[in-house]
Amino acid sequence: MTMDLMGFILVALIAIATAIGMLYSRNAVYAALFLVLNFVSVAIFYLMLGAPFVALSQVTVYAGAIMVLFLFVIMLLGAEKLPPAEVLPWQRPLAFVLALLLFIEGIYWLSVKAGTTAQIASPDATIGTMDAVRSMSMMLFQEYLLPFEVTSILLLIAMIGAIVLTKRVDKKGGQA
């Protein structure tokens, strides 16, 4: 049992535990906080996989920006909790069965069909340098230039969409 493996198992347990916690917390705020923890643990995975840039992005964009946005909305709406009223009694057991099937299929695929046996060592020195970021950036701005530009348009549209959706329209047709 190497240090790597022990660290991996630790982080994996945290990630799974926080995911389950998010799933079962009655309060939406708790769920959001659990999710933040989960994102952070995934960011640690990224670091372990030698992707420090992605890890940083994960922390800033997801754990920072997105989850803050979530919490903000939760606060705004004041809808942390819902009354316990189940209208779909059969939904829950069925969901569990399906999830189990999905999990089995995933494991089956990974272990039997894909059969990936590659080992991942600790990130060495070269990976952490700026060279990796540079070569990644070169790819981004050369090979993936078009998707990158499309992404910018996507963000623009999302911005406009969010503004339009949240804008109040009063009964007289005027704008508030």
Binding site: T2, D4, L5, F8, A12, A15, I16, A19, I20, M22, L23, N38, V42, F45, M48, L49, A95, F96, L98, A99, L102, F103, G106, I107, L110, S111, A114, T116, T117, A118, Q119, I120, A121
Partner: peptide, 21 residues
């Protein structure tokens, strides 16, 4: 040394939990 399949297993677990959610 961690086999890559471990990461993938974690990924599958997280995905399944997300779907369940």
């Amino acid at each position: 040394m961690v086999p890559v399949s471990y990461y993938l297993v974690v990924s599958v677990i997280l995905f399944t939990l997300g779907a369940l959610g």
